[in-house]
Design a binder for these strands. Structure first.
Lengths: 246, 246
DNA sequence: CGGGCTTTTGATATCCTTCAACTGTTGTGG
DNA sequence: CCACAACAGTTGAAGGATATCAAAAGCCCG
């Protein structure tokens, strides 16, 4: 398992698969094993919606009444700590599914970092679908296991690595997210703030800022504009991520 | 979600449920929703086995040919890093299930810390069972989601807390593990080494040792013998775990 | 009894946090 | 449209928490 997967979702590649259309096509990850009839079911049971940047998709503890498939936008998943700090559990991108599962309530906050566009399906309807199409349940289990594996990877990153290594790992993850989606790699959008990244990596925002500055000085990355990232030397990032100082 | 859950497994309480007998009774967590016929199926499909302390139940990357239900013993789950360090992902106790899922290979090493006693079921047989009893698949998904939630909790612990707070959280988790199993709380077995605990909490073994020493000095805990723990003031632990220095 | 762990404890080093000031950016209402 | 407030990012200096290195003591197994 690749340590970069920390911020990747299950290999929910946005396939250009035919049978899925409209909104349902984006539930791809979930629907992969289904036939056309099933997809029709889902299409009719789900609805699209838009939301502005900085709005909450759902909050930790809210009754988990629906699952969301991200069509457009970047979502930050986080939990609040007693002392007011937050731990960012991950970032989610188009094609990812959030809020699925069988728990009563959501386990974390989901906040949009950019304007967003979702496909939403009611929990009860999802349950019906699961009953009707057992393969979907298997698929959901797969997704969950992959998510578990990537969370464990992230645990390794946060628990045992230097600040430089953590930031390098984060950046490589960002690249991978876009590569898997076959999106242009020249200039990656990076809507999260230094603070978000710090809360994800277990660092302060100052340390993140300094590390970015160092990487820029070394010509490893560039930031051609706000929230835009250009990776100039990903090999160097790989080396740094792997923990060597050499 | 309780931060202590980090080292707890899904609420696989060992119910004194009747229908489950012999080996299958310990697959309780998995079988919970099943009827007697199904349990017979499982009983006949699973086998018991014993293994000595320090033996490996399975290794990261091995083909995931079977799932194990722990009847007796404590198992350490860990992943190896490039630089030779290890990250301990969690500890598992009697009643817990390890190695289940739909992945091709195991995602981590599973090593016995004590002598152990398992119930083992073949992956192919498990798949057949899942096909035959869809409820079991749902149950597996539940387990996975709970595991995910507790891993995220642990992420918070490792990412954002002081050494004292991490150790306190670990100890509270140990208490909770035993409480849930209705085992005697006066003197907890604690088979893991300082090094294991450090690798779990993202600390060095020296820091763990010093923190234990400090807690003993303050009369919060005692170690009446090797690998035995007595918690004298769990309120203090709770306070420390919650991150205050006050 | 001896060898190899594990644990403890000390001294020192270092990485990261904290605190603080300043700059740059964005969005908003006059 | 500009001024200003709020927010995001940068940079510096100092201090602290934890890692690292080292040595000795305790414990278990053969």
């Amino acid at each position: 398992m690749n340590p970069l997967d920390s911020l990747l979702r299950p290999a929910v590649a946005v396939r250009a698969s035919a049978t899925c259309d409209g909104c349902a096509s984006r539930l791809n990850g979930m629907c992969q094993p289904l036939d056309t009839a099933a997809l029709d079911d889902i299409s009719s049971d789900s609805e699209r919606l838009r939301a502005p940047a900085k709005s909450m998709v759902f909050r930790e503890g809210d009754p988990a009444l629906r699952a969301f498939s991200i069509v457009e936008g970047v979502v930050k998943l986080s939990r609040l700590l007693a002392d007011g700090k937050q731990q960012v559990v991950g970032f989610r991108f188009p094609g990812d599914i959030i809020g699925f599962g069988t728990q009563r309530t959501y386990a974390f906050d989901a906040e949009l970092l950019t304007a967003g566009h979702f496909c939403r399906i009611d929990r009860r309807k999802l349950d019906q679908l699961l009953r009707r199409y057992p393969l979907m349940e298997r698929r959901l289990l797969d997704l969950c296991l992959q998510e578990l594996a990537s969370t464990q990877d992230h645990l390794v990153t946060v628990g045992r690595r230097s600040a430089e290594s953590r930031v390098a790992t984060f950046l490589l993850g960002l690249i991978e997210v876009h590569r898997r989606r076959a999106m242009p790699l020249a200039e990656l959008p990076m809507p999260m703030t230094r603070s978000d990244i710090g809360d994800f990596l277990g660092l302060t925002l100052e340390t993140v800022s300094r590390t970015f500055a160092a990487f820029k000085r070394q010509g490893i990355i560039a930031e051609p504009g706000q929230h835009k990232l250009r990776v100039l030397n990903s090999d160097a990032l790989t080396r740094i991520a792997e923990g060597d100082a050499a």
